[in-house]
Write a protein that binds this DNA or RNA. Structure first.
Lengths: 144, 144
DNA sequence: ACACACCCTGTAGCCACTACAGGGTCAAGC
DNA sequence: GCTTGACCCTGTAGTGGCTACAGGGTGTGT
């Protein structure tokens, strides 16, 4: 399998595959006489695993950790569990932040009283608010 | 005002201020005889505006655009409105993705049947699933 | 013989910072 | 007067996870 074929099979860019090889996540394949990378089935498996983790937004360093568990199945699986838990915590924290953000943006958008001059624009006015020490749409709900 | 004082007033690192100056977001201040940056009130205002936008996760390029509107108040304010709308759309898209992600991670975590060997770990098994072409916890709800 | 798609390596760019290294300046305390 | 420590300066490199070249080579079809 050439790199382009592997790329298509795994729905990844060929350059991403070379990148994974460079950082040691994907083992270097053997080469055809012409110097082209020649991949075997194991590479597709491993690449699919990596992409699956990435779809879950798991960092490449953590993916590397998971791959070590896969490679050495005698390891304690509690670490895998902990890694997923950490990831879940991270995702939930980000969710909270984004939900706050959404509320703030909605509030901000409602400020535009539709004049056509930026000078009177409620949004810019609101964005400038903290500047003048005023109470502002965002900052009263901005916990963090 | 020295850079450290401005940094404290705006709750920013001094290095971030120098960075904003380097990329042209914050005008270069005058200098004291010893070469230290000497900031005036206007700088604090502008920096607060920037940080306020960043708290809303608005990209620096968009912040620069907003600052141009502030600097030239005769501009049409509809562009400001559009920028906030785009931002809101982006945030909502990210929210959707993250909510999907959370569900997937919760499903994944429930797979660990608590043996102590990675070889039997339900999580690793599940992460390997797409590899074997099996149906997997994630991919049936994984729209995109 | 040529076009075109693919492959190779190596390097630089993206974003928004952050973290040095290696120096200079200043005020307080001994 | 000398040291200590906090601050300031510039310039460069690193982060993550790719992406995008530049400048070459290879393979296939017409």
């Amino acid at each position: 399998m050439k790199i382009g074929e592997l790329a298509k099979a795994a729905h990844v860019e060929a350059e991403t595959i070379r990148y994974y090889e460079r950082i040691g996540l994907l083992p270097a394949p053997s080469r055809s006489p012409n110097g082209y990378r020649a991949y075997a089935g194991g590479h597709l498996e491993r690449l699919a695993f990596i992409r699956h983790c990435r779809a879950l937004d798991i960092a490449l360093a953590d993916v590397a950790q998971l791959l070590r568990f896969v490679d050495d199945p005698t390891t304690d699986c509690a670490e895998v569990d902990a890694l997923i838990d950490t990831q879940l915590t991270r995702v939930r924290a980000r969710l909270d932040t984004l939900q706050m953000l959404e509320r703030q943006l909605v509030a901000l958008r409602s400020q535009c009283c539709a004049p056509d001059r930026a000078a009177q624009c409620g949004i810019l006015h609101e964005l400038e608010a903290p500047t003048r020490g005023d109470v502002c749409v965002c900052h009263d709900e901005h916990a963090q």
